[in-house]
Amino acid sequence: MTKHEAHRPTIAVYGANGHTGGYLLTELHRRGLTPILVGRNTDRLRAAATAAGLTDPDIRLADLDDPNALAAAFSGADAVISSLPAYVELGEPILVAAIAAGAHYVDIAGEQLFLKRVLDEYGPRAEAAGVTVLPGVTDTNLPADLIAELIARRLPAPVEFTIGHHTRGGAGSRGSAKTLLASQDWFRDGGWHFAEGEFRTGPVRQAEMHYPGEAAPAPVAKFPFGAVLTIPRHIDAASVVGVLRSEFRDMVIGLTPELVAALPEKPGAASDMGHDLVVDAVGADGRRLRGVLSGLDSYRDSGLIAVEAAVRLAGGSAKAGVLVPAEAFDAADFLTSLGVHDIDWKIEIQ
């Protein structure tokens, strides 16, 4: 048992019957914790609990459009994990209810539009309730923010950051496609990047990235990673840009509701072929560093990271308010703790 698990917190999960939700429940069960499962369908929640090995689960029903029922369902929880598709459409009721219930909050949102809304608007409410809100805890956003913090300590400011993500096989789930479709124009156009002290839309000059293990650089397009918004909050950054393979943007442009409906609820078996998060940085003196976090499955790893974050917040070590990862946790300690799950990281000279 680690120092972060000594308290044995109570964690509520909304979205437990989804693909990532299954990983959340399995990891909570592995830690000896009994989660509260909150949702709209008893049978689906019970099936998710059984699949995760949970016996006699605590199941509570609440609709997203019933704030009082949601807050009541989260009562007694030290922290809430929100696992949803399309946070821009569905995410705020869970956040509002968690704050009302006096519970810390973590979500797995990958949408800049939702993340910026939370960062800009919910700080005073979270502080008044004495809770910590940590949005955007995914396999890309949280590690990128923490790795950037560690890199910034080694390079003179201001630092230029480029964030990339590379999946070595597999396909996405229907929930991921719903997320992309809900903000299709934003994902297609690349969202915000940070330059000259402000967030901007529009094109950037980055045209390629040399991903780990590949023989040649790959063409990339601007992509709206959440860490683009969080890194400038705690680092003197000259610029922060997110990029992804160009063919992914082409896939986003081609999404339709009909195609999304035809996708499987869960990704194919090849989704466990691994992924790499890349954080490239250039210091004011021209020195270059690269941080890399490598894992086995993006959905699994996002769930594991969210549980680690929720357990730590439940321990009460972070201040109240809306925080970004490096404001909530010791960067090296958090990243190293993921090694037990075969999620490894390093920083190297370029």
Rank of each mutant, 00 (worst) to 15 (best):
M273Q: 07
E265W: 15
E258N: 03
M251L: 13
V240G: 11
D285R: 00
I305F: 12
I305A: 07
P257L: 03
A262K: 15
K266I: 15
S294L: 00
H275I: 06
V278L: 15
L304M: 11
V282N: 00
L259G: 10
S239D: 07
V243G: 09
T230G: 09
S294A: 08
P264L: 14
A306V: 14
G303N: 09
V278F: 15
T230Y: 14
T256Y: 02
A284H: 01
S271I: 12
Y299S: 02
A270L: 04
H234M: 07
R290V: 09
R233I: 02
A284R: 00
F223W: 10
E258S: 03
A218V: 12
A261Q: 14
G268C: 03
F248I: 11
L296A: 10
F248T: 02
L296Y: 00
I253P: 01
P264M: 14
P219C: 06
L293F: 06
R287N: 06
G283S: 00
L255S: 11
V292C: 00
V260E: 13
D272G: 04
S294T: 11
P257R: 10
V241H: 11
H234F: 08
L277C: 14
P224H: 03
A270K: 02
D276K: 05
G274F: 01
V252W: 13
S302V: 08
A238H: 14
R233T: 10
D280V: 03
G303I: 11
